[in-house]
């Protein structure tokens, strides 16, 4: 054995500890969601459930309407938004990646200026509420994340690396640009599209600011915004008339909501991870 093996053990234990520490908040929430409300209030949060029970989940599944609605909204927005976004961005990026595109330079400057100067919240708020008048609509939940400038740049760089010879051959065979885009660029661009699509999907999934600014209608709540509301006003569930406020498992329920909202996404993350990692390195090392 080389002397290096000792340092490797130290490194492994160090990284293992850091990784465990990073997981503590997740454990805390899961443990709390399986805890008895009284015990949670009296003994406090811990890494192991206090008086293990499922009443928080029972409570949510008894009246799952609100949570299901938010889930439905979030899934619809994520799927629709990401698809639309990918189509719009990849079309733009494909055109931009063509050396012979006459407006390439102008669009380049157009993008960079948009990246450098941001009008910020106030003009955006006025645009949506006074000009477009889209508050309390499904559309506004879709619109804000539709285009990512950074993602356009990743796609453009990727499309530029695709072999031009192939496109030229297709052109000689009489293929138009739509045809080339549909049957060559999209299939060959899959790795980049997957990465960018994931980035956008996460933005949609995690979006709570758009509803915070523009949505008052509970039917349009997204998952994250619902969680925000539940946390802000834990008694919101007490509005359900049949149950007395005293027997409400509020804290445990809140945490169970968080688990139900995050669990599937966190699970998905571990499968999607490698595409995301590629996205990070793509962007930073270009």
């Amino acid at each position: 054995m080389k002397s290096g093996s000792w340092s490797k053990i130290i490194i492994h234990s160090l990284l293992g500890l850091i990784a465990l520490a990073a997981l503590i908040p997740f454990l805390l929430i899961v443990a709390a969601s399986f805890s008895d409300e009284m015990a949670l209030t009296v003994k406090g949060y811990s890494l192991w459930p206090r008086d293990f029970n499922l009443s928080a989940y029972q409570f949510i599944f008894d009246k799952p309407g609100r949570l299901l609605r938010a889930y439905g909204n979030t899934i619809a927005i994520t799927v629709l938004g990401t698809s639309l976004s990918l189509v719009m961005m990849s079309l733009f990026a494909y055109a931009l990646s063509r050396q012979l595109f006459r407006f390439r330079r102008i669009y380049g400057i157009f993008l960079v200026v948009a990246m450098l100067f941001s009008g910020g919240l106030v003009p955006y708020y006025i645009l949506v509420t006074q000009v477009l008048k889209l508050q309390n609509t499904f559309i506004i939940l879709l619109l804000p994340n539709l285009i990512g400038l950074y993602q356009i740049i990743i796609l453009t760089a990727f499309f530029r690396q695709l072999p031009n010879e192939l496109f030229d051959a297709a052109r000689v065979d009489g293929a138009g640009e739509w045809r080339i885009y549909g049957s060559l660029v999209v299939p060959m661009g899959k790795p980049a599209l997957a990465t960018v699509g994931l980035m956008i999907a996460i933005l949609y999934w995690n979006n709570w600011t758009t509803p915070l600014y523009f949505i008052r209608d509970p039917d349009l709540y997204t998952l994250q915004y619902l969680l925000y509301q539940v946390m802000r006003d834990a008694e919101i569930l007490a509005l359900e008339p049949q149950i007395g406020a005293s027997q409400l498992p509020t804290q445990a329920t809140t945490m169970a909501m968080a688990v139900l909202a995050t669990g599937p996404a966190a699970f998905g993350f571990f499968f999607a991870q490698k595409y995301l990692v590629r996205g990070i390195t793509m962007g930073s090392l270009k």
Binding site: M88, M89, L111, Y124, I126, L143, L149
Partner: peptide, 15 residues
Amino acid sequence: AALWILLFRYLTMVG
């Protein structure tokens, strides 16, 4: 995409 950028990025700059 250009229309979106014009609306959400450039119009808000003027804003």
